[in-house]
Design a protein around this nucleic acid. Structure first.
Length: 544
RNA sequence: GCGCCCGUAGCUCAACCGGAUAGAGCAACUGCCUUCUAAGCAGUAGGUUACAGGUUCGAGUCCUGUCGGGCGUACCA
């Protein structure tokens, strides 16, 4: 429709001013329904070049719009010079019939067709259970992946982790200490060690399996492995509960084993972007506009995390993805420019890397901000949260808000959210429709195959139809902006339109043709709700 | 100090590329269930979009400055 309108406007403009430089014509949906179904501001933008009053221009364009197709019923000039269009019922009902025929795939788009996209998210090192702090990352990443799939892309979900660093050393030390303590040895807990109860559990498992055979320091790898495996299993189970399934887990270590790390250094050195000072190896990030150079290899010989980060992103691009998306918390934002610089310096197309940065979740507990620390075992796990409110509410909570805003997560409120939680509004709409449909099937036996949607003339009906028809556009908008809350806002509007319809229009008791048209309208509505909730990874229940 | 993000109703947040009268939910108040799920619908009230300038036909949105909050600014990850 947008394209059609643009063409009509262009045609009108050409008639008025044949030698005009065709401006960019934007069609938007007016905020207020009083202003019609679509509007354009071309007249306003042309006012300057045409040296004429915008309203006059608008009127002239409006007069030249061809209404013969029957899709547009009115063209009006309004406000400072907007041109408002109103769609005809024919257009609406034709599109609705199309939507009905496209069945379960209604809403699918092809704007990312033939694109292979990787989304990397969660990527928490296996040092402890996933907390609500990780939740926003996990849910955002998975939902971005889902919506990109709906927009036509092939998507791979990857979890990147490091099981070799300092964190993991401290972790195995912590487990070992608990093990020794359980065997009655008087050893003090390591400074900065991981204090969570899960550490003792892992230690206990090791003890059950190996008894007291592991007293010597040479057995540390056993503890490390036990910790990593146990924790990773937990993490995977938590993700599964949240309806998240990874396609691959990428161990940072492989970048050392396959020589990628050395290759990055070599390439940077060839480009004269590397130098050594004080025994450390530096990357000339000042060449890329940074105010300081960056250490890639410490004087201890150990790389900083930026080096593998660069190698990892090169690795991703070399795997042939058309687009690589990182889901980053605000604390990682500073590393992003270095990675881009590194990738660029190694001759790869850094434009294929896109980062979704989300702001931190402020945990509020008992009315006070709650600072979490995995080491101090001071955290609320995602599992605990899901025990309280379920996976649907958990996902919804993290997706409701734009990634770029600080999200306040009140634990107490979420726990007692129960039925006033906004996710139920959407699920209720779906369940309500299914309930109606069950009754419709009991009471009617429609013999036609094609409903006559022209029967649907009530305001609540046309509003609902218009909402339904926006679905695909919203998916595309959500996929390109990578902002799932836009889909949520849309589904809320859709549910509102349905509930209003429910209030105003009945099916049971109506004549067959109207009942058929209405029930098919609801079938499509339910499908949009189910598809939309599916993209959010949330269930669409048939009963509540 | 410097860099990035945020500041919108009492609270939590929307607002597509700069568009028309800044919208929802929660909380408050008022109506609507003998008929398809009241987990709903309709309505009332609530605002100097942190503040001060600027850009223009038009600014919550863009620019500059101030204030407030978060994060970063390590040879930590």
């Amino acid at each position: 429709m947008q394209e059609y309108l643009k063409k009509q406007i262009e045609k009108a403009l050409r008639q008025i001013q044949p030698d005009l430089d065709m401006p960019e014509i934007t069609i938007e949906k007016p905020r207020s329904p009083d202003h019609g179904d679509a509007a354009t501001n071309v007249a306003l933008t042309l006012a300057r070049t045409l040296k004429n009053n915008p309203r006059t221009i608008a009127q002239e364009i409006a007069d030249h719009i061809d209404l013969s197709s029957g899709y547009i019923t009115s063209v009006e000039v309004a406000g400072p010079g907007f041109i408002n269009f109103r769609f005809s019922d024919t257009w609406l009902t034709d599109r609705l019939a199309e939507a009905r025929h496209s069945g379960v795939s209604f809403g699918r788009s092809r704007i990312f067709e033939n694109q292979s996209i990787q989304v990397e998210f969660v990527s928490a090192n296996p040092t402890g259970p996933l907390t609500v702090g990780h939740g926003r990352n996990a849910v955002l990443g998975d939902t971005v992946a889902r919506v990109l799939e709906w927009a036509g892309a092939r998507v791979e979900r990857e979890y990147y982790f490091n099981n070799a660093g300092r964190q993991m050393r401290v972790l195995s030390e912590s487990v070992r200490t608990r093990y020794l303590q359980a065997l009655g040895h008087d050893v003090s807990f390591p400074e900065g060690g991981y204090e969570g109860a899960y550490i003792s559990e892992i230690a206990e498992n090791v003890r059950r399996k190996h008894g007291d055979e592991l007293l010597g320091e040479e057995h540390i790898p056993v503890f490390r492995e036990a910790a990593e495996n146990g924790i990773f299993e937990d993490i995977k189970r938590t993700l599964e509960r949240m309806n998240i399934s990874m396609d691959s887990f990428f161990n940072e270590n492989t970048l050392y084993e396959d020589g990628s790390i050395d290759k990055v250094i070599t390439l940077l050195r060839e480009n004269d972007l590397i130098y050594e000072t004080d025994g450390a190896t530096w990357f000339k990030t000042t060449r890329f506009g940074k105010d300081k150079d960056t250490v890639l290899i410490k004087s201890s010989g150990e790389p900083t995390y930026r080096l593998p980060d660069i190698a990892y992103h090169i690795n991703k691009l070399e795997r042939g993805f058309d687009l690589v998306i990182d889901i980053f918390g605000a604390d990682h934002i500073a590393t992003y420019p270095d990675v881009i610089s590194g990738v660029k310096a190694c001759g790869l197309d850094s434009k294929k890397i896109d980062v979704v940065v989300y702001q931190f979740v402020t945990i509020v507990k008992d009315g006070k901000p709650f600072k979490m620390s995995t080491r101090k075992a001071n955290f609320v796990t995602l599992d605990e949260l899901m025990d309280e409110v379920g996976a649907d509410v958990t996902r919804f909570f993290f997706l409701m808000r734009a990634p770029g805003t600080h999200l306040e997560f009140d634990i107490n409120e979420a726990k007692q959210a129960g039925e006033k939680n906004p996710v139920f509004y959407l699920q209720y709409a779906h369940a309500r429709i299914q309930s109606i449909m069950r009754k419709v099937r009991e009471n009617y036996d429609f013999n036609g195959t094609e409903p006559d949607f022209r029967m649907l003339t009530h305001d609540s009906e046309t509003t609902l139809i218009k909402r339904i028809l926006e679905f695909q556009e919203i998916i595309e908008l959500t996929a390109t902006s990578r902002e799932p809350h836009k889909l949520i806002n849309y589904l809320n509007d859709l549910a509102t339109a349905f509930h209003k319809f429910y209030h105003d229009c009945r099916i049971l008791g109506e004549m067959d043709d109207l009942a058929f048209a209405r029930s098919e309208l609801l079938t499509v509505t339910a499908r949009v709700l189910a598809n939309g909730l599916g993209i959010l990874g949330i269930t669409a229940p048939d009963r509540m």
